[in-house]
Amino acid sequence: MRLYAQTTVRRSRQVLADLIAVALICAAVKLALVAHDAIRRLADPGRKAESAGNSLSDGLVDAGDAASKVPFVGGQLKKPLRSAAEAGTGLADAGRSLQDTVGHVATLVMIALIVIPVVIVLLLWLPPRLRWIRRSALTRRLANNPGGADILALRVLAGPQHELAALPTPPGGLAEAWRRGDEQVIADLAAIGLRQAGLRA
């Protein structure tokens, strides 16, 4: 199985197409990672809210513990401070929730920005490459089989005629020479067939 053509022009086109496909996939991954990092930065307010909420809650809990030691009214002072501490905990929870949401969005955007372009590139690039690999293998196998050169020559005669102008025209024409089994004409036509497939004789 041959991955690249043997003829220079077609091989150059194939290598260029492969490089473009790889470059587009790398660019998609890089863009996705940049977008992921940018979206993750939107979670900074959530981190600050979580930190502030935890600090507020801890401070109010400590204040409530200290207030509970005041004789006679300590229990009454502690209750509102505990309630305020729960509000601080709620702020911290909201900050964590914001961070989680932003993290999920960043991950989903990153996956979408990788998967969609990669699928498009693969759909545009891979089928023609696989078709060429399969066709070149079949053409090579045909050329190596007994009578395969005749079939290749016939395919060339039945196809576009522009490449036939370079061949010397025997008496009666190329088709007549092919019918007679002229080995040189068949070999020349088969070589054109191989060249059209990107292969050398």
Rank of each mutant, 00 (worst) to 15 (best):
M1Q: 08
R2P: 02
L3W: 13
A5E: 05
T7H: 10
T7Y: 01
T8A: 15
R11H: 11
Q14F: 02
L16W: 03
A17E: 09
D18Q: 10
A21S: 14
A21I: 01
A21L: 04
I25F: 01
A27P: 02
K30W: 14
L31W: 07
L31Q: 09
A35R: 11
A38T: 12
A38F: 10
I39D: 05
I39G: 08
R47I: 03
E50R: 15
A52T: 11
N54H: 11
S55I: 01
L56K: 06
S57V: 04
L60K: 10
L60R: 05
D62C: 03
D65N: 15
S68C: 08
K69L: 14
A84V: 04
A84S: 13
A87T: 13
G90I: 00
L91Y: 02
L91N: 08
G95W: 02
D100H: 13
T101E: 10
T101W: 06
T101K: 15
H104E: 15
V105E: 09
V109D: 08
M110H: 12
A112V: 01
L113M: 15
V115L: 15
I116Q: 06
I116Y: 12
P117Q: 10
V119K: 05
V119P: 02
V121Y: 02
V121T: 14
L122D: 08
L124N: 12
L124T: 10
L124R: 12
P127E: 07
W132P: 02
R141G: 09
R141Q: 14
L142A: 06
A143V: 00
A143C: 04
A143I: 00
A143M: 02
G148T: 00
D150S: 01
I151G: 00
I151A: 10
A153T: 03
L154A: 08
L157A: 10
A158Q: 14
A166E: 14
P171G: 12
E176I: 00
W178D: 03
R179D: 05
E183V: 08
Q184P: 01
Q184N: 13
V185D: 09
A187K: 14
D188R: 09
A191R: 15
A191H: 11
G193C: 05
G193A: 10
L194Q: 10
G198L: 06
G198K: 04
